[in-house]
Design a protein around this nucleic acid. Structure first.
Lengths: 204, 204
DNA sequence: GTCTATACATCGATAGAC
DNA sequence: GTCTATCGATGTATAGAC
């Protein structure tokens, strides 16, 4: 039993909780220490500063998300199945990680440097030099399977449609009475509506 | 000349700058005072607390945005022209207010209460009880002008596609080398691609 | 490795003179 | 209305005993 690593893990999961709930700026080292069942001094002993602790937590959470997404769609070649799988998995992964979006947006909005670096690292680790889905969309266009849209814009549209309800959740649920963004019913509807819109929009 | 009001305006515009740049949490009353050319004490004399100053700034900036959007599309009845106008105006208004999005997202992610209240107020002031575009989409469906999609999902898709490139701007510009989200060229492409995708997706 | 105690900085807010 | 000076709370980080 390695006491060192055990404490480190307790700190990391407590820090993930607090950072996700409060955001980096409002997160307090005291609260992280409390939830980990230790004191502030030990936090700095293990991670030196709040900044470094945050970096470590951010890296782990975001890497998990993107690796799961890449895993889910990497072997699909048929464009229709690929789009369906992308939408389904993106929405499910986000639905399971609602607070992670705030986390990523907070980070992006401080310049996005960490996020860009992390994405590069993740792609490098997977041996990717291009975005797989972009290449597959372009291939489908060349083979005449879908209309000649701009692949980059299609990807931006896909992600935007999937992610927006989660970003604007309080407003969406208030403006559209009856919608519960996390309900199984809404998630299923959302997947279907996005796929139908996209597919009708680009099929030949 | 009313000195009272003049100082108040200087404070409000300085506060808007700082809040937009730093966000509510990281904004400092000292910096707002400096930019307004006064001292901290006077800030509290006029607005009592940071919270109230923030509320006032938030209300003004967000109201302006939505009022401009509503003004731009309220008289359009034809569904095709309406969708085109919504996309064009939404993208232009956001492009002119890049930092406002962070502002709104920050606010949403602390619960969204202020945003919901503000939207209700804005709609009340305009005498609206429903969302105009939702009603017009449903009317177009009933009249058989577009396919019977879910109007709420269509609106979510529209906004998501318009707003996403601005939210994820640093990532988008890095992943898609060559894209400059704020360039006239990209904005024009984006408007066209969104409209074409939507219209092909729902036209009969 | 883990603790207590504390240094040191910063921030929002206010008191009080003018 | 506007200023200077300062309070009180809170935050990160560290020193030093065990």
């Amino acid at each position: 039993m390695n006491y060192n690593t055990e404490t480190e893990q307790k700190i990391l999961s407590a820090a993930a909780e607090v950072f996700l709930e409060k955001g980096k700026g409002a997160a307090r080292m005291q609260e992280i220490a409390d939830r980990a069942g230790i004191n502030k001094a030990l936090l700095h002993y293990y991670f030196r500063s709040k900044e470094r602790l945050y970096d470590e937590v951010f890296k782990r959470l975001v890497s998990d998300f993107f690796n799961e997404l890449f895993d889910a769609i990497q072997d699909i070649e048929d464009i229709q199945l690929l789009l369906k799988a992308f939408i389904d998995n993106y929405i499910d992964l986000i639905a399971q990680r609602q607070r992670l979006i705030r986390f990523i947006i907070w980070e992006i909005e401080t310049g996005g440097g960490k996020m860009v670096e992390l994405l590069k690292t993740i792609m490098q680790e997977r041996g990717l030099t291009t975005i797989p889905i972009e290449v597959k969309i372009q291939k489908a266009i060349q083979e005449g399977k879908i209309a000649p849209v701009d692949s980059r814009h299609l990807i931006l549209s896909l992600i935007g449609m999937c992610i927006y309800p989660f970003i604007a959740r309080p407003i969406v649920e208030n403006i559209f009475q009856g919608i519960q963004v996390t309900s199984t019913e809404f998630l299923q509807q959302r997947k279907t509506e996005i796929f139908n819109l996209i597919w009708n929009g680009i099929k030949k």
